[in-house]
Design a protein around this nucleic acid. Structure first.
Lengths: 228, 228
DNA sequence: ATACAATGTTATGTATACAAGAATTGTGAC
DNA sequence: GTCACAATTCTTGTATACATAACATTGTAT
């Protein structure tokens, strides 16, 4: 046990401990602090986080339903493996839902949200100028959040957010390639203009290729990782 | 508290109690035994089911992530309300995913599965002859299961099954109207033949109208319920 | 040396105890 | 009669104790 893996529970908000633990563990899994295949042992985690087993157990149940951990009875939980197949499965679903998002947004987006979206597009273009990957990724997420919220479908929002999280670890991969930056900006603009015009067809097409690009980048990266 | 609502835990399989409780509660919610807005109190349920609070709590957490109960901190859980909006939200997502299912199935279905699908189509037509709603509903589910499994995408399968469950209570509504039975048979046949021909386009269209019909039946029913 | 059995350890499954917050009810004053 | 405030009760949040199943280890016999 190394020194710097004793991550403590920070009393984020006044959330119940199970939620704090849940967020902690989820984050640890997504950034790779807890690696695929690693077992999540309750007593161990309880000591590490300074809480009892109860909130740990409840958090693990939640992670299970999110697909981040796999449970086997009487053996406990382990971090789910990320394979090319599993990523592809997630991306297939996400593509369909992202297309649905822009189609719905097309019909329901308000004037105010359109204005926000325009700003977000410009902010994204500006962030590309800086070349800072983190900043670009954040601008991208902000932009997508506006579209997703514009659907007015909380169920859809929850699902898309959850699926996006599954790929959190690869969030930089598809913006690393700077030759693609202009393409990204263009796709965003196409989506924005389609929403303005209410043209669901072209918006859907743009969203589709947007995910295709993402898929390519992620799959490429996974093959690199597994090839080593 | 009436006599016959003391549903006991039956030791279904050798599942952990949390799963037994989860299945029990889910079923109770879906068939309306536990009504929307009804509070789920841990001690109460624990006594009723003859287990301790621990498995109850874990089951409730799982139900929360499935969207069947709503939790508010320090107040506990209650059965989620079913509104026209919430059903519409679910159906929107399900339509997109059902379309994705047939498109993927188009590319991936095996010869054997196609044979099963053909049989299922015929079994459905036969069940319609009997006029027994329960039998028709089961045949319909069996048919859809074949298509869903043919996608080979476990993630997608899980999501579609979960979304279907949300509408469990209305599963008879869209097959009640016997004037629609011929339409249903025809739609199934269109999907089957599209899969044989590998024609994703027409399969998608059929799946879409299939859900549209379902939506109409469900929304009509909800308006009836709320109008009374 | 290998296979198998017995034993001990470890982790999960379940129950229960205790703490603390929220709602409700009752009492008093205006 | 109504409003405010306090006390009680009910419920959830968390910790811990005990039971049981799985796994590892060790010892013995062949």
């Amino acid at each position: 046990m190394s020194m710097n893996d004793s991550f403590q529970v920070n009393m984020d908000a006044f959330l119940p401990l199970r939620d704090v633990v849940f967020n902690n563990l989820r984050h640890a899994i997504l950034v790779g602090e807890l690696k695929p295949g690693e077992r999540l042992m309750e007593i161990h985690l309880a000591n590490k986080l300074g809480v009892s087993r109860t909130p740990i157990r409840e958090a693990i149940r939640m992670l299970e339903l999110e697909g981040l951990v796999i449970m086997t009875p009487r053996r406990g939980a382990e971090v789910a493996q990320i394979t090319e197949k599993s990523m592809n499965d997630v991306l297939e679903v996400r593509q369909a839902l992202d297309v649905l998002c822009v189609e719905l947004a097309c019909r329901r987006i308000t004037a105010e949200e359109l204005e926000d979206l325009k700003d977000a597009c410009e902010a994204f273009a500006a962030s590309v100028e800086t070349g800072d990957l983190r900043q670009i990724a954040e601008a991208d997420v902000a932009l997508h959040d506006i579209i997703i919220k514009a659907t007015g479908n909380p169920r859809l929002i929850q699902l898309v957010n959850n699926l996006s999280l599954q790929m959190y670890r690869y969030r930089f991969e598809y913006i690393k390639d700077s030759t693609q930056h202009e393409t990204l900006i263009r796709e965003h603009r196409v989506i924005y203009e389609s929403l303005v015009a209410g043209n669901a067809e072209t918006a859907a097409q743009a969203a589709k290729t947007h995910i295709d690009n993402q898929r390519n980048a992620i799959i490429r990266q996974i093959r690199l990782e597994q090839g080593k």
